[in-house]
């Protein structure tokens, strides 16, 4: 399993791997929003938690089809399915690789984007914590959507339609935690619920995704 993780990370960081594209996309979202709503710091601070979370969601979505599509095209997925490694493990590892290349950079860079959007400094900690706890769920749910649509031509748009509704609970609790933090309150309750959802998806979704992959491989 470690070998698969290392290979996926290596592929992502080599030329053409698309590493950092999600981060650049996140930056563009955070740059465009002030053009749309106006430069007043008060307005921006108000909507910053939502924009940051929606931006993270979309940045994550952008690279989802890479999770399985490339391995499907070159036959690696067939070989992984016949390997001693259980399919559920492969799904988990590939989602982890996706998180390390897209989710983790977002978590690290989020405070900078928070400054761009005038997020109150008291909320920065909440933002990082919420993204850290929430983005793994985005990756694993995205892996499920990618597994459902892996064999399809033009599966990307369909995948967004399937995956985005699954992101609703994560988005609600994640943004709520930051919003409470920005209002000077305590975001522990939504943060705990967010962590609960992430843990539950990490435990259950690999089975669904592996089932979908097996169906798509036959």
């Amino acid at each position: 399993m470690l070998a698969l993780l290392i290979r996926d990370l290596r592929l992502a960081t080599r030329a053409g791997g698309g590493f950092g594209l999600g981060l650049a996309f996140f930056l563009i979202v955070c740059t465009l929003v002030p053009f749309g709503v106006g430069p007043e710091g008060g307005t921006l601070a108000l909507i910053a938690p939502g924009i940051l979370w929606v931006g993270a969601l979309l940045a994550c979505l952008l690279s989802l089809d890479r999770i399985f599509a490339l391995d499907w095209e070159d036959g690696s997925l067939d070989l992984l399915a016949t390997a001693p490694l259980p399919m559920e493990g492969a799904v988990l590892v590939k989602a982890a690789a996706h998180w390390i290349t897209t989710g983790l950079p977002l978590v690290v860079a989020a405070p900078v984007f928070g400054i761009l959007l005038h997020l109150p400094s008291g909320a920065q900690g909440w933002l990082v914590a919420a993204l850290l706890l929430g983005t793994p769920a985005l990756s694993i749910l995205g892996a499920f959507g990618a597994a459902l649509t892996v064999g399809l031509r033009r599966g990307g748009l369909l995948m967004s339609l399937l995956v985005l509704p699954l992101y609703v609970p994560t988005l609600i609790f994640g943004a709520e935690a930051v919003r409470r933090g920005a209002a000077g309150g305590d975001g522990t309750t939504p943060l705990v619920l967010l962590a609960g959802i992430t843990l539950a998806t990490l435990a259950a979704i690999p089975f669904a995704a592996a089932g979908a992959l097996r169906v798509n491989l036959r």
């Binding site: 053409g16 791997g17 070159d74 690696s76 067939d78």
Partner: peptide
């Protein structure tokens, strides 16, 4: 024995970047 079989199709599961 499923663990006795090595399958190879037209595509080799090789990554060009590696």
């Amino acid at each position: 024995d499923p663990d006795a079989i090595a399958y190879a199709a037209h595509a080799d599961g090789l990554k060009g970047a590696l």
